[in-house]
Structure formats: C-alpha cells, structure tokens
C-alpha cells in the first residue's frame, strides 16, 4: 500500500485548518497530524473493494434519466404532508427503487411544503443568543 499518499504535511494541516476554521498550537500539530494519518491508513482498507459499478449520486456515477423513470417502488401510496398537515401531491411520481443511492434515503421522494407563511416576529429569537449585537442586528468584525 502506498502510504505516502496518506502523509499529511504541516502545510496540509494548515490548509485544512483554513477550510475548517481551526487553528492549532505548534505543539499540538504533531498529534493531529498523527491522528489523521492513522485514520487514513485505517480507511485505506476500502480499496480492497471493487466498487466501480456501484451507483451512487455524488457526482461520479450519475444515474441516467431512463434508469429512474423505469423503476417503481412499493411505497407509492405514501402521502406527503406539508407543515400545516395538508396532503401535498407532486403528481404521478415514479419513485426510485429501494436500494437506491445515498444516505438514509427514505422510500419516498419529493418532500415538500406549500408556499404559505407560517412564521412571524422572529427578531427576538434571532438575536437572543447572539454574543455581540447592536440594536436589531448581529455584529461581526468588518467584512470586505
């Protein structure tokens, strides 16, 4: 296994820190680097699997439009409801198959709410926990 691929340099740590908005003391950096490298070495085991033809939506393997419309699901009669409890329908949908795609996907799609106002007077709640505020606004350091 090519372990060089999993080495994290200090520059890389700093870069990921910029992405995540985290900073580390010099003394800590080694330990975070080590922790990350350890995990990367560990998860390398997934390379043993041949996953070339496994369909997922994440940008790499995009299911073709014809795949989708041809499939049916046993949960077609499930009703979608909006925030006010009214049944919302999206027309005659062909739903995807059960072994479909990503993350915890439930058996139906097209979960909607209707375009009706249901919130009001949110100012107090919005400002309630703000660390620094001024009048009706939340304050942050000057942005460009």
């Amino acid at each position: 296994m090519d372990n060089n691929y999993n080495r994290i340099s200090k520059e890389m740590l700093d870069y990921v820190g910029i992405l995540s908005k985290l900073e580390f003391e010099e003394s800590e950096k080694e330990s975070y680097i080590k922790g990350m490298e350890e995990m990367l070495d560990y998860v390398d085991i997934l390379n043993e699997l041949d996953t070339d033809t496994v369909p997922v939506d994440g940008g790499v393997y995009v299911r073709s439009q014809t795949d989708i419309t041809a499939e049916k699901s046993e949960y077609q009669n499930v009703q979608n409801k909006d925030l006010l409890g009214n049944v919302v329908s999206a027309g005659d949908v062909n739903t995807g198959s059960q072994t479909d795609i990503t993350a915890g996907k439930s058996e139906y799609q097209n979960v909607f709410r209707e375009d009706t106002v249901s919130n009001e007077n949110g100012q107090e709640a919005a400002l309630y926990n703000a660390p620094v505020k001024k009048g009706e606004y939340i304050v942050v350091p000057k942005t460009i």
Binding site: G58, G91, D92, V93, T102, Q109, N110, V111
Partner: peptide
C-alpha cells in the same frame, strides 16, 4: 449531496 433533503423526481405529468 445534502443529506437532509430528499431527491426530486419530476414526473411527466407535473
């Protein structure tokens, strides 16, 4: 992919 939102399947009818 946004894990909190379900995919959209747009039917011909719609």
């Amino acid at each position: 992919p946004e894990p909190d939102l379900m995919p959209l399947i747009i039917s011909e009818k719609w």
